[in-house]
């Protein structure tokens, strides 16, 4: 069982929801990323999704697009990002790290090489936003051989056939996109999410995390009623945007922001 699978199984056994924060690696500059990752753990992160900056993040909203632009302008690239994970792993061997990004930088490096280097750096899983399950036959074995979990997205538009296909290839968890839209969108329809998650659970026993539109304790608690985990991304990244010029204040801010969400989720448990 991988570190990611074990972490999520343990949480389930304890009746707790997984809290999965997302930040873009290298934002506002690579020097801050490891500190921010530790701050997320201090705030109660169970899994960290670390964004791999890409020049054309077409599934993301303006908040994360700008984060990508800041990170790239500060010299972040794939090699640098893997170094940052390696550095994080020196003092944290327990919190799984999932890299979330787009295919081109990975394919440019070579998928097999990337998978091995990521594993060696201490990465646990990958979520490639623009890699649909239909295009994975060549890729999935390479990630599996490297021992990396492949996390896939499901959406309100996903048909039964697609849910089955994704459940057959995905591992670790499935990431349900709560709404039709890009990251950072405002509206969250909890009843709709509950309905779709129930449908998805007919076809898979994988833990279901929900993201897009979760920005505070209240929205996290609402989604936590029906999901195994919640992903908080743009709400954290917009803090980084606001304080990019004074990054020294960010660790305490992110710990506090995530801590409030952690508390709300833990009150759901038991």
């Amino acid at each position: 069982m991988s570190r990611l699978q074990k972490q999520l199984a343990d949480l389930k056994a304890q009746g707790r929801r997984a809290l999965i924060p997302f930040i873009t690696g290298g934002d506002p500059a690579p020097a801050h990323t490891v500190g921010l990752m530790h701050a997320l753990v201090a705030g109660g992160a169970d899994v960290i999704e670390l964004g791999m900056p890409f020049s054309d993040p077409m599934a993301d909203g303006p908040t994360i697009q700008l984060a990508c632009e800041r990170a790239l302008a500060a010299g972040t690239n794939v090699s640098k990002l893997l170094e940052l994970v390696r550095e994080f792993r020196r003092s944290n061997q327990s919190t799984p790290v999932v890299l979330m990004g787009y295919l081109n930088p990975i394919e440019h490096r070579g998928v097999a090489k990337f998978a091995e280097q990521a594993r060696d750096a201490g990465v646990d899983g990958v979520l490639i936003v623009d890699l649909a399950v239909e295009e994975t036959p060549e890729f999935a074995p390479l990630f599996r051989q490297a021992g990396l979990d492949m996390i896939f997205l499901l959406a309100p538009t996903s048909s039964e056939a697609r849910i089955r296909a994704v459940a057959a290839v995905g591992s670790g968890y499935l990431y349900y996109v709560s709404l039709k839209g890009v990251t950072g969108a405002a509206t969250l329809d909890v009843a709709g999410v509950a309905h779709k998650l129930a449908e998805i659970r007919q076809y898979t026993a994988l833990p279901l995390a929900v993201g897009f539109g979760i920005r505070d304790a209240a929205s996290a608690a609402a989604v936590g009623q029906v999901a195994d985990g919640v992903v908080v991304g743009s709400a954290l990244v917009s803090e980084i945007e606001k304080h990019a010029a004074t990054p020294e204040v960010l660790p305490a801010l992110l710990t506090a922001k995530l801590g409030a969400i952690r508390k709300a989720l833990d009150e759901l448990s038991v």
Partner: peptide, 11 residues
């Protein structure tokens, strides 16, 4: 091929 986020696959 078809390299897009999941939401667009069904449309």
């Amino acid at each position: 091929g078809r390299f897009v986020a999941e939401t667009l696959m069904e449309p």
